[in-house]
């Protein structure tokens, strides 16, 4: 246990969590990362809907899709389901 953890006097009762999981990054779970081919992407939003992590955001004002690698666990559902095959899963070094 680290010193960052609080004492019983400092925390609210009954385990009410004081933090949103938005602060808990899961991006380092992944082996493969999704790489998008922007020319093939039709912004159909299939990946946004089916991503279990909510890691693919649709930005309506820009009409763009953005993948948040901070949460992406690399499952590959987006690549598997993309109707235009605009997403491929790659090892980070392959990408570099």
């Amino acid at each position: 246990m680290s010193n960052k953890e609080k004492t019983w006097k400092e925390i609210s009762i009954a385990g009410v969590p004081p933090k949103s999981s938005i602060g808990f990054l899961t991006g380092d779970w992944k082996t493969y990362m999704p790489i998008r081919d922007l020319e093939k992407c039709t912004i159909c939003l299939t990946c946004v809907m089916l991503c279990p992590e909510g890691a693919i955001a649709f930005l309506p004002e820009k009409n763009k899709i953005q993948i948040d690698l901070g949460f992406c666990k690399g499952c590959g559902i987006c690549a598997n389901e993309c109707p235009t095959k605009a997403i491929t899963m790659k090892m980070p070094e392959e990408e570099e």
């Binding site: 609210s12 009762i13 009954a14 009410v16 969590p17 004081p18 933090k19 949103s20």
Partner: peptide, 9 residues
Amino acid sequence: YPMVLTHEG
């Protein structure tokens, strides 16, 4: 009700 701190701060 007791007061508690939530994830919204």
